[in-house]
Design a protein around this nucleic acid. Structure first.
Lengths: 154, 154, 154
DNA sequence: GCCGTTCTAGAATATTCGATT
DNA sequence: TAATCGAATATTCTAGAACGG
């Protein structure tokens, strides 16, 4: 099953999300990427084979890190397992799980709610402050300038 | 019994606490770590075997001191026994007991209340700044208000 | 060849850097990690095998991403190849290269100059604020006190 | 101009070591 | 002395930044 990728003004599904859905649904690659049992997350069974064999079929790269960067950019979160990082038994080797509240099996109508992240205003402000800081030669100058009593009292 | 460990949500159980609960509950290691009789604390019966055999199954180390550091970081306290410091009878050798008001047998719903100690004040300040930010409608307004106009124009 | 890891007052080599040097020098793993031809950088030939077979021998993990995070933390930079991102010929598959001006073949005396990155000035300022905060009893006091000229001039 | 890819950094927890009480 | 904590590095997950399409 695939999902429309064309921009439908209001509720279009981003290209990445659409590809991801197709990827998880595809029976041919279910041994490498598939839904979790309850359908609320998806699993990558063998990170190494997945990145080299499956990713280039959908994206312009074969790096797990780029795939994860996109997942985070769209608000997905890694599901942490109890045995994370421990020397693994063969049965449990290399299982990665990601989740997003609007990415669920049999719920394609939710996909349009998944949005790419943009910068927060707070981040923009902090960056502005840091830029100012870097232009100052001494700490005292900077600190005197920045936080004055009157400004901080709401 | 296991406890959900998903990060980044509001009321999730920290990974360490989740692992600890699993560890104490696990029947297979009840001879080394188990609940106390009243279920209000847990006991480590043989520190040496526990650290070498059980810890590496859940953590990236096999040191009792690292385990204790984490316990203290999450607000657990050692329960001091009356015979502490005395030459120990064989029956009492190597018994360590730790306690936390929200870590009790058959009360997993309390685990979410166990919090890692952090420098909370920094968070409070950041939230305060963010709150200030969110009260402003435009960037220019905000910047003018917070930090004097002259300073922000680089 | 190994490098002393003991803190020698002034110019001790950080544990990570020492391990990295040992790792690159070790003849037994030269097929997976070795010096570049000119000795000014090092190469990881097969990222997948390297991460699973070599990393756990030196670190508490087997993730390339954790290794790269440390490299960046110590000021190493990835050397970008011209064929990055292209469909790779078999001979060139999976070759990763990193470089640091003080990490060179036959120059172990430079290793002490490699330093872990520390927090940015903005963070230091925040911590200073926190220290001030902890001296105050109430929020109102704190906010007024915090950002006044006199307090911030160290 | 937004999205995708890559390299690097931020932020929180984890581990170690030594100081404090 | 024993229990707790501070601080530095280590590991993990997520985000910033630069660049190109």
């Amino acid at each position: 099953a695939t999902v429309a990728m064309t921009p439908n003004t209001a509720h279009c599904v981003p290209a990445f999300v659409s590809k991801l859905w197709t990827l998880v649904e595809a029976p041919s690659t279910n041994d490498l990427i598939c839904w979790s049992q309850d359908g609320c997350s998806f699993l990558v069974q063998d990170e190494q084979r997945f990145s080299k064999e499956v990713l280039p079929l959908y994206f312009k790269h074969s790096n797990m890190t780029s795939f994860v960067r996109q997942l985070n950019m769209y608000g997905f979160h890694k599901v942490v397992h109890m045995d994370a990082g421990l020397p693994k038994a063969d049965s449990q080797v290399n299982c990665v799980e990601f989740q997003h509240e609007n990415f669920q099996r049999a719920q394609p109508h939710l996909l349009g709610l998944i949005r790419r992240k943009v910068k927060l205003i707070s981040v923009i402000i902090m960056q502005y402050i840091i830029m100012l800081v870097q232009k100052q030669s001494t700490h005292t100058q900077l600190l005197t300038l920045r936080f004055s009593h009157a400004e901080m009292c709401v």
